[in-house]
């Protein structure tokens, strides 16, 4: 089942857990507390190529490291969308072009792209769950004919919490995918759908038995979404979610990211709902 999932054992540095110097090329403010930071190596050394759904440890010099998903890798530039949610991410969202930071990775198992080939693909993102899904979406679009129907459902709390606004417009215009965007609540200036992300699933068109779903967002959103997808007949093993836990080392040695038997950093972050379902029902696991 997991045979086709790709991962990499460690960072490119020969010093264990040591970041490589990178610098900021550009910063795009996505929402009031979220920024997309593009980084390039500062020097000749770079981390290995990333796979959709993998993450890196971003290092704010003198402050510390935080696990951040890779939201794009193009022409050697790594893109990371970071929400200001603590000391380290605060520093990361405050970076400006030219600033120094550290990167190590990539880490973890990403989206099972091989398993999705030839199938309908349903991508469900909640809030900041979209960035880690974007590389998967891009890979599908690069080789569009290798996949069946492509349904994207993106939900956020309010319209101002939506990220990648321009790209959403672009995806909406495409004929080879269907994008539904919904928000939990909106003012009169919002002409789109209002309702939690699960309310848009009944409108998504896919053949449940030959569908692979990639779900990323807050844990509770992923749980409800996975339940709804399974309710539509998608096998639980074909629903993949990206878990998030406290991480210090990202290589399965520090113990922080355990979720039952899984080390989220090493065995995940993308795990099958079939495997996780019983655990998602246990409080404070």
């Amino acid at each position: 089942m997991l045979g086709d999932r790709t991962g990499s054992p460690g960072g490119a540095s020969d010093v264990p857990l040591a970041p490589l110097p990178y610098q900021v090329r550009s910063v795009v403010r996505e929402t009031p507390d979220t920024a997309t930071v593009a980084v390039v190596p500062r020097g000749s050394r770079r981390i290995g190529p990333t796979r959709p759904g993998q993450f890196v440890m971003l290092y704010a010099f003198g402050i510390g490291e935080s696990p951040i998903g890779v939201s794009d890798e193009t022409d050697g530039v790594l893109y990371h969308t970071v929400r200001d949610a603590g000391r380290i991410t605060h520093a990361l969202t405050r970076l400006t072009p030219g600033d120094l930071l550290g990167v190590r990775g990539p880490y973890g198992h990403g989206w099972p792209m091989e398993a999705a080939r030839g199938k309908d693909v349903v991508i469900v993102a909640g809030g900041l769950g979209l960035p880690p899904l974007r590389p998967a979406l891009r890979e599908i679009l690069r080789d569009r004919d290798a996949y069946g129907r492509l349904e994207i459902v993106y939900g956020a709390r309010t319209p101002k919490d939506l990220v990648y606004y321009a790209e959403l417009q672009e995806w909406r215009r495409r004929a080879d995918l269907r994008l539904q965007v919904t928000v939990d609540a909106a003012g009169r200036d919002w002409y789109g759908d209002v309702g939690v992300v699960t309310t848009r699933l009944p409108d998504a068109r896919f053949d449940p038995e030959r569908t692979v779903a990639f779900v990323c967002g807050p844990e509770i959103m992923m749980k409800f979404t996975a339940q709804a997808l399974v309710g539509r007949g998608v096998p639980a093993e074909s629903v993949w979610v990206s878990m998030e836990r406290n991480m210090k080392c990202a290589i399965g040695l520090c113990g922080h990211c355990q979720f039952g038997p899984s080390f989220v950093c090493r065995d995940g972050p993308v795990l099958s709902y079939g495997e996780l379902a019983p655990r998602l029902g246990v409080r404070e696991l």
Binding site: R83, G127, R157, D184, V196, V197, P218, I220
Partner: peptide, 13 residues
């Protein structure tokens, strides 16, 4: 059910 889901605030950090 949707209202309940909305109530738990899926996007709460």
């Amino acid at each position: 059910e949707n209202t309940r889901v909305q109530l738990v605030d899926l996007h709460a950090r």
